[in-house]
Every structure is written in C-alpha cells, then in structure tokens.
Simulated scan of single mutants.
Amino acid sequence: MNKNILKSAFVAVLALTFFSFTNLLVKEVNVKDSKITWKGYKVTGDHEGTINLASGTLMFEGDKLNGGKFTVDMTTITVTDLTDDSKGKLEGHLKSDDFFGVETFPTASFVITGVKGSAGKYVVTGDLTIKNKTNPLTFEMTVANNQANATLKIDRSKFDVRYGSPSFFNDLKDKAIYDEFDMNVTLMF
C-alpha cells in the first residue's frame, strides 16, 4: 500500500510540475454572444444567414493561441436575406438531404490541429467535419480582448453537398450554385 501512495504522489508531483511549465489555459467560448454568418453564391445572386455555435473552447499557452475545438448546431441554419415563404423554403432546403441533411447530421465540428503566428494574428489549420466527412481547412484568425475573428472559405463539394454544384452536374447554366461559401466567425470568450 505504501508503494501505491508513493507512486500516486510521484505522479501528482510530475503532473503539477509539467502544468506549471506549460501554462496551458482552456477558455470556454460564450456561445450566446458568439456569431457565425454565412453567404452562399449562385450564378444569379447570393443568399446569406446565420448558424449557431453549440459549444467551443480555445486553448492558449500563455497569451498565444495554441488550439481549440468547436461544434456547430446545423439545425439552426437560418436565412436572413429572405422573408415569408421564400425564407422558410430555403431554410428547409438547406436542412434537407440535398444540402446538409441535418436530421442525420445535426452537428458539424472543427478541431484546430496547428497554429502559426503571434501577437494576436494567426494562421490556423484544422479538421472540419460536415456530414461525417473531414477535410483540412486553413484560415487567418485574429485574437484580442477576449474575442476571436475569422473569415473562412469552405468548399461544400468536399463534404458531399452536391445540390446544384457545377463540380458534379453539367449543363446547370443559371441554376448553378457555386461550391465555395463564406463564413464569418466571431467568438467571444
């Protein structure tokens, strides 16, 4: 029994020593005050809206961004540039299997795998998962005053979101919906 106590004490001292030198801090993202907007483009125009963050954390080593992970609630996709029936129809279509299939895939996630930079300006690399398909994504992020901001370009065709995609269908003409869409992310922590 004394050996077990000694082993436990040794592990505890080793862990405390390790954490005191790494200075790793995990900050919860305030999902209520954070905001994600999206904008999708088609030959004849564009549409935009919002989507809610379900959870998120950012990791810092000292004051330098080191990592993080996020979950997006795909069931909250809304359209902000339309009203009435048009709004409801597009929201329903985006949630359907033609696009994000939120009944089967209610969440998407992003896990930071690498961070370069300093002084609040970073190039972030991570794994984005939508519809159970994971692909790498790299973008710039600024961090200051308990806020992180990023603009992402996402290629939906890499996540099997095919509806109206010129990458999968020929002769769409003015019905084509471009594969890349924009997301503007503001994280409050």
Rank of each mutant, 00 (worst) to 15 (best):
N145A: 05
F105P: 06
V124M: 11
K64H: 01
N23H: 07
F139T: 05
G49A: 05
Q147P: 08
L53F: 10
F70T: 04
P136K: 10
N4I: 02
D84Y: 10
M188L: 14
R156G: 14
N52L: 06
V11G: 09
L16K: 01
M188T: 15
K35D: 12
T75R: 03
K133A: 13
M59V: 14
Y178A: 09
L65A: 00
Y122T: 02
S86Q: 14
T104F: 04
N2V: 07
K116I: 12
N184Y: 11
R162E: 08
F181N: 00
L152A: 05
Y41Q: 09
N2F: 07
T37W: 04
G92C: 06
F168P: 11
V13M: 13
F60Y: 07
T80W: 11
G114N: 14
D160Q: 11
Y41G: 00
M188Q: 13
K89Y: 13
A119K: 05
G101T: 10
D73G: 06
T76E: 13
V13Y: 12
V11T: 14
V43W: 00
G67V: 13
F21H: 03
A108K: 04
K121Y: 01
K42H: 10
L24H: 06
S165I: 00
T129I: 04
G114E: 14
F159D: 05
F60T: 00
T107N: 15
G67K: 14
G62F: 00
F169K: 06
I36N: 10
L53P: 02
K27T: 11
G120P: 00
N135F: 08
V102Y: 12
S165W: 09
N23Q: 04
A9L: 15
D179E: 15
K89D: 15
T129E: 12
V13I: 15
V72P: 02
K27P: 12
A108G: 02
S109D: 15
L187K: 08
N23T: 03
K173E: 13
T186S: 15
L137R: 07
K69V: 09
G67W: 10
D81A: 01
H47Y: 07
F21M: 04
A12N: 11
L65E: 01
K153C: 06
S165Q: 11
I177S: 03
V185K: 03
T134M: 07
K131S: 04
I5H: 09
F159I: 06
M59R: 05
D127W: 00
I5R: 11
K64C: 00
T151S: 11
A148I: 02
T17C: 13
